[in-house]
């Protein structure tokens, strides 16, 4: 098991290199110059410009610049922006906000998705089942940008006007409650997919031979479903949830902008417009790392849930 984890982590290194190189190249190819953006409308002293260009290796060839970045990265240094801020400092607090948001969304997804999926599966072929399926289809079809604004209006503004002040419209001024609405919006589509996956998984599991055995053993239905079927039906759901955590972190860009949350998604949005190359690459590097780790955790959980899978 230990060797397996180490091997997986080693395998992550080329993935990280490839992803950073790709993003570095894309940002490098973008038109616009960070020093010019820094100056804004004013004209900058050519001498200062030259010093800045020199300090940030802006005139070096692409690969050399990337090399400078990489060496810094392996020293735990994500670099500095042209305005002088350390990327690590900029991202530290913001990463926490995005992680909180993604976790909120993940919990909502798991509870609502698995719950609705089980409900539909246990009423397989009946009206409630069809209703759930239709609802998930609607949810999948609406982009999160729309659900974001609609929920902001309905739950954030109208509900407050009705006297129930539960969901802040935006920002984190009111503490953890600020995560509720954006979490729900972020989880929306995933809830729909997970509901469908849960339903299919349980319906299929309930047809298995060992379920017939469990019934023949004279076990009560809640034990047949809640223990024998559920333990098996959960296995594919864990994979989906784990892989989805990375997607949720990445998907936070739009949600954080709509709900004005100071996370890495919002920062990414700002940094792309400011041509802050080190920040953009830093965010992507972090996201890739989260993705790789989430998938590793999923694979390890798999072995716990399914005894037939063993890692050497």
């Amino acid at each position: 098991m230990g060797r397996y984890i180490i091997r997986r982590l080693v395998q992550a290194i080329p993935v990280l290199l490839g992803a950073t190189l790709l993003v570095y190249a894309v940002v490098f190819a973008l038109p616009g110059d960070p020093v010019e953006v820094l100056a804004g409308d004013k004209r900058m002293d050519p001498h200062i410009t030259a010093v800045l260009r020199e300090r940030y290796h802006l005139d070096d060839p692409f690969l050399l610049q990337y090399w400078h970045y990489l060496t810094g990265l392996f020293h735990g240094d994500l670099g500095v922006t042209v305005s002088g801020g350390s990327v690590s400092d900029i991202l530290a607090g913001r990463f926490q906000v995005t992680a909180n948001l993604a976790m909120t969304a993940l919990v909502m997804e798991a509870v609502a998705g698995v719950g609705l999926g089980l409900y539909a599966a246990l009423r397989h072929g009946r009206a409630q089942d069809s209703l759930v399926l239709a609802a998930t289809l609607v949810l999948i079809s609406i982009p999160p940008l729309v659900t974001g604004f609609v929920l902001q209006l309905l739950l954030g503004v109208r509900l407050k006007q009705a006297g129930i002040d539960l969901f802040p419209v935006a920002g984190l001024a009111e503490g953890w409650r600020g995560y509720l609405l954006p979490g729900l919006v972020l989880a929306g589509t995933s809830i729909a997919y997970l509901t469908r996956l849960t339903r299919t998984s349980l319906v299929e599991t309930l047809r298995a031979d060992y379920i017939r055995t469990a019934i023949a053993k004279g076990l009560p239905r809640r034990r047949v479903v809640g223990r024998h079927a559920l333990r098996n039906a959960l296995i594919p759901l864990v994979t989906y949830l784990g892989a989805d955590f990375g997607t949720l972190m990445g998907g936070a860009v739009i949600t954080e902008t709509v709900f004005n949350l100071p996370g890495i998604g919002q920062q990414l949005f700002t940094s792309v417009s400011l041509r802050e190359q080190p920040v953009v690459v830093g965010v992507v590097t972090l996201l890739v790392l989260v993705y790789v780790l989430a998938n590793l955790v999923v694979d390890l959980l798999y072995a716990v849930l399914d005894p037939r899978i063993r890692y050497e």
């Binding site: 060992y210 055995t213 019934i215 023949a216 004279g218 076990l219 849930l305 005894p307 037939r308």
Partner: peptide, 22 residues
Amino acid sequence: ARIRGRRIAMVFQDALSALNPV
């Protein structure tokens, strides 16, 4: 359910799929 398993029991054909893998 009180009779099933207790007074009338059944052995199935393919024990690999008839036993719960987890």
